[in-house]
Simulated scan of single mutants.
Amino acid sequence: MRLRRIHHVCLRVADLDEAAGRWSIQFGLTLSKREPERVLLRCGYEPYSLELIPGQPGVDHVAYELDRDWSLETTVAFLDAHDVAFERTPDAIFLADVEKNRIELVPWAPREQRYPDVALCTTELPAFRPRKLGHVNYLTARLAEQVSFYTNILGMRVTDYLGEEGVWLHINADHHVMALVNKGYAHIHHFAFELVDWGEIRVALDHLAQHGRWIAWGPLRHGLGRNLSAYVRIPEEECFVEIYCDMEQLEADHQPRYWPDNAHSSNVWGILPPRSYFRFDPIAVEWEREGKEALGYPLPPLGGSTIQSTGRTEA
């Protein structure tokens, strides 16, 4: 299979109007379409980047756009040949990876705007806004199987390995469209909005702070990926948002690299995330929001087999 790019992330939300306003005001997203049971929001000039639907809060699915020469009909034949279950709708194909994370595949569409955004004119985009939706990151308990699925079925290519615990994958020249990190259970970790530069990250963090958001990790400079980043917790939908810029752009003949699983690979400035960064339970959120680890209070363990707030089990 051949993919062109990440298309959108779909979130289930408790209150559609509240969530639409919150994501628009706090992250500078623009309304693309409002329907009774769905809101579409966009970064910059993208058709839409975030889909909101009513339901139990959390990530519903991640969507990818197929390559120009890879139609929905070709995709159906490919999935049938590889015995992958899917659901076909008139405009998309839905399937799931080995840990039941839902995926939508949408057909290629010509971009309405082919020129750089700085050369365009607008009467509706806000001054502060992300440039595009860039990637997603999943925590996993089945790393090897997940990598096999995303490379052999969806056609992603391995960019880099982080020791034995993480794999970064790409579709185009961006360093990664997805990362998988072995943490013993399945949960989306974050999706990422690209900003123009370091100055816009500063503007975004100042703005988010005024809305009661806090940085879980960052600002930082990843070794693996090269991007400048900061991670903001979104308790309402049990995920993080990464805001980033300066992602490494890959050469056409890029070969996977093996990074040691150490602090320098994760952050060349040397600060690793708190333990709460990989958890989504209420205790982890409280410890992180109030900086309790930094104050000397260890994050309480979840125990030998504790159910997460999502209903999943962390061993």
Results as ranks from 00 to 15, higher is better:
Pro57Asn: 03
Arg42Ile: 08
Ala20Thr: 11
Leu11Tyr: 14
Cys43Trp: 10
Trp70Ser: 05
Leu52Pro: 07
Leu29Arg: 06
Val59Met: 13
Gly21Ser: 03
Glu51Asp: 06
Pro47Met: 00
Leu31Glu: 08
Gly28Gln: 09
Asp60Arg: 15
Thr75Cys: 09
Glu18Ser: 14
Ile25Asn: 13
Leu31Lys: 14
Ile53Ala: 08
Pro36Val: 02
Trp70Glu: 03
Phe27Asn: 02
Gly55Pro: 12
Arg42Ser: 13
Asp80Cys: 01
Thr74Ile: 04
Pro54Thr: 01
Thr74Phe: 07
Leu31Ser: 12
Gln56Ala: 14
Phe78Gln: 03
Phe27Gly: 00
Leu72Cys: 02
Gly44Met: 11
Ala20Pro: 12
Asp80Arg: 10
Val62Asp: 02
Asp15Val: 09
Thr74Lys: 15
Arg68Met: 01
Arg34His: 04
Val13Trp: 01
Cys43Ser: 12
Val76Thr: 10
Glu73Gly: 07
Glu65Trp: 07
Asp17Tyr: 14
Leu79Phe: 13
Phe27Lys: 05
Ile25Cys: 12
Leu16Met: 07
Tyr64Cys: 04
Tyr45Ala: 15
Phe78Arg: 04
Glu37Ile: 03
Gly28Glu: 04
Ala63Ile: 07
Ala20Ser: 13
Ser71Arg: 03
Ser24Glu: 12
Glu51Val: 06
Leu79Arg: 07
Glu37Asn: 11
Leu41Pro: 07
Glu65Asn: 00
Trp23Ser: 01
Leu31Gly: 12
Asp15Leu: 09
Glu73Met: 06
Ser71Asn: 07
Tyr45Ser: 14
Arg22His: 05
Asp80Thr: 05
Ile53Pro: 13
Ser49Ala: 06
Leu16Phe: 12
Pro57Ile: 02
Ser32Trp: 08
Thr75Ala: 06
Asp69Lys: 09
Leu29Pro: 13
Gly55Asp: 04
Arg22Glu: 02
Asp15Met: 09
Ala20Trp: 04
Val62Ile: 11
Ala77His: 11
Ser49Tyr: 06
Leu40Arg: 10
Asp80Gly: 02
Tyr64Pro: 13
Trp70Tyr: 14
Glu51Ile: 00
Ala14Gln: 13
Trp23Leu: 00
